[in-house]
Design a protein around this nucleic acid. Sequence first.
DNA 1: CTAAAACCTGACGTTGACGTCAAGGGCAAC
DNA 2: GTTGCCCTTGACGTCAACGTCAGGTTTTAG
Lengths: 148, 148
Amino acid sequence: MRIGDVAQRAGVSTRALRYYEEQGLLTAERTPGGQRTYPESAVERVRLIQQFFAAGVPSRTILQLMPCVETGQGTPEVFRVLAAERDRMTAAMAELAAARDALDHMIDIASHPTPEHCPGLREPAWSPYDPSGVTADTGSPVTASAGR
Amino acid sequence: MRIGDVAQRAGVSTRALRYYEEQGLLTAERTPGGQRTYPESAVERVRLIQQFFAAGVPSRTILQLMPCVETGQGTPEVFRVLAAERDRMTAAMAELAAARDALDHMIDIASHPTPEHCPGLREPAWSPYDPSGVTADTGSPVTASAGR
DNA sequence: CTAAAACCTGACGTTGACGTCAAGGGCAAC
DNA sequence: GTTGCCCTTGACGTCAACGTCAGGTTTTAG
């Protein structure tokens, strides 16, 4: 397979594939003319790389994990990285969940024309400094008293 | 509160706070001398911004949501953005979960000294092209028979 | 054999959320 | 007043994963 085929099948650009090679994530044979030749498995490998990128794993870390992918063996170092990344992903999922909850909260609040309908939801009390202008505080005394 | 206090309490740098202001995410009063003054609520607001950043929401999008935070009202546009971001976060969580599963899979494989113990796990078959050299293929006919 | 398509290397550009440095100005304590 | 810390604006640097362009070579289709 040539680079364009792999790119198309894996859904990435050829530039990306050359970048992966530059980073040591992907190797390729060369034709006598100097063009890259990939085995079928490269597509799957690229998909795996993409999956890690999508999960926020930087290329250097992926590189550390590659020996494990290739040999099926894990040094203690590799296990350490694996566990660390696993933890990082779990934490990232938690942060995403929290942010999503915040969004849900906002949706909830914004859905009610009369906020008094559910005052408890306004706990965090985002007090608007100046709802009208931007810098000039012309003193509309709204001031979310945040009572409770 | 001055900028240093807010920074410390919210756990960010003063540079970050000035950046937020530059992006329209945070406003501040000014002392006669030109120094920024924040209300208490700024700390909470910064934490919210940080939470969104951690969830991958870019500043422009956060800016679109700010009217909702300030007024508790939502225009149709704001609802559209809210829903889109919610979907994006859900998708991101799914990708994270998938990547984490891939890691677990690798941990699983690498934990077994003898891969024959569970051959089915090696389905994807990452064949090493040339385990010895890097670029110079001096024709060692090793050719990864993937045996073992 | 030739023309088009695909590929090559090299190098600079992009984006976002800041870090960092420089050269000054404000503010409270002493 | 003056010392010293905190603040100001402005501007350039960073890092990652590519995008994009230029100029040339290889492969393929007819």
